[in-house]
């Protein structure tokens, strides 16, 4: 509970930052709204209707007041509540994040364990090489190469787009595979590395030797003892990695044209849609804080010695 309460001032700081940042930078939503051929008079009129001519402190007061009542405001462009816009975009982003996590765990943990088990062999070196490489190639380059190969040359996947789960599972997952692989490259690099390291550490412990001495097969030792004890650091990294995932989502969604929160953010920033930018950043930060809180709680589940 104390930890939960501690998140409130953090989110308050985030809100304040974002608000000040937007108001202190140039760029005028009114000019954007008026259109490419809008006249100076039209722009002045729009500024007035949006309340942008009020003093900054008054604008801040109004926004904070609404925020406390759970009202994120209305988009300048779509004339819709930001909450509604965000809800429309949640499914694709969550779906992308989950499939990415699934792919990552399915790939990274086994190769990490194998690398640890075959410590020092060429297999281990390959895994380690990949893990550094995965960190060094920008997400969009990976995306383009995958599209070029698997969508255009081999025609295995659609080039772009997103289908809702409601439209059927196959079309849904079919369109998610390439983006998820793209996004998971960097993540696999990270988790494979940490898995290998944690398992390696655990393999040196006495009770593992005992387990081997008892004549338990490799498979059982690795899975039941080593991996289980390596779980804490792995989970930690998945938690911190959420921020990384959010960054990756922004880029991946624009490469594959997925109508998720990442693209909403970029569009809102480029269009100076202040209420939407404020809300989306707030939501992302909230999710980040919340997930890290959950991760902390998971520790005490995985390792009863840790308590909060």
């Amino acid at each position: 509970m104390r930890r939960l309460a501690a998140t409130i001032p953090v989110l308050g700081m985030v809100a304040l930052f974002v608000f000040l940042m937007l108001r202190m930078t140039p760029g005028d939503p009114a000019a954007v709204l008026a259109g490419d051929n809008g006249t100076p008079q039209q722009i002045a009129e729009i500024r007035e209707t949006l309340g942008l001519d009020e003093p900054i402190l008054v604008q801040l007061g109004i926004w904070f007041g609404d925020l406390l009542q759970g009202d994120l405001g209305q988009s300048y462009f779509f004339k819709k509540d930001v909450t509604e816009l965000i809800l429309l975009r949640v499914e694709p982003t969550v779906a992308l994040a989950i499939t990415t996590l699934v792919i990552t765990v399915l790939v990274a943990v086994p190769i990490g364990v194998i690398a640890a088990y075959r410590h020092g062999t060429w297999l281990d070196r390959c895994v380690m090489g990949f893990s550094v490489f995965g960190f060094s190639v920008p997400v969009f380059v990976v995306g383009y190469i995958l599209i070029y190969l698997f969508a255009m040359q081999f025609k295995m996947f659609p080039v772009q787009g997103y289908k809702e789960l409601a439209d059927g599972f196959w079309p849904f997952i079919h369109r998610l595979i390439l983006p998820s692989i793209t996004l998971s490259v960097i993540y696999i690099a990270l988790i494979a590395r940490i898995t290998r390291a944690s398992v390696l550490e655990v393999l040196g412990e006495d009770y593992i030797r005992t387990a081997y001495a008892k004549g338990l097969p490799n498979r059982v030792v690795l899975l039941r003892h080593a991996l289980r004890n390596a779980a804490v650091p792995i989970v930690t990294v998945i938690g911190i990695g959420v921020a990384l995932l959010i960054s990756g989502v922004v880029v991946t969604e624009s490469v594959y044209n997925i109508p998720g929160l990442g693209r909403l953010t970029v569009d809102a920033v480029l269009g100076r849609d202040y209420p939407t930018i404020q809300a989306v950043i707030l939501v992302f930060s909230g999710v980040y804080v919340l997930i890290n809180l959950l991760i902390d709680l998971t520790y005490s589940f995985l390792d009863p010695r840790i308590r909060y």
Partner: peptide, 13 residues
């Protein structure tokens, strides 16, 4: 507060 904002979003903005 700063840490809670995903770095790339902060930089983009």
């Amino acid at each position: 507060g700063l840490m809670a904002i995903p770095g790339i979003l902060l930089a983009i903005a």
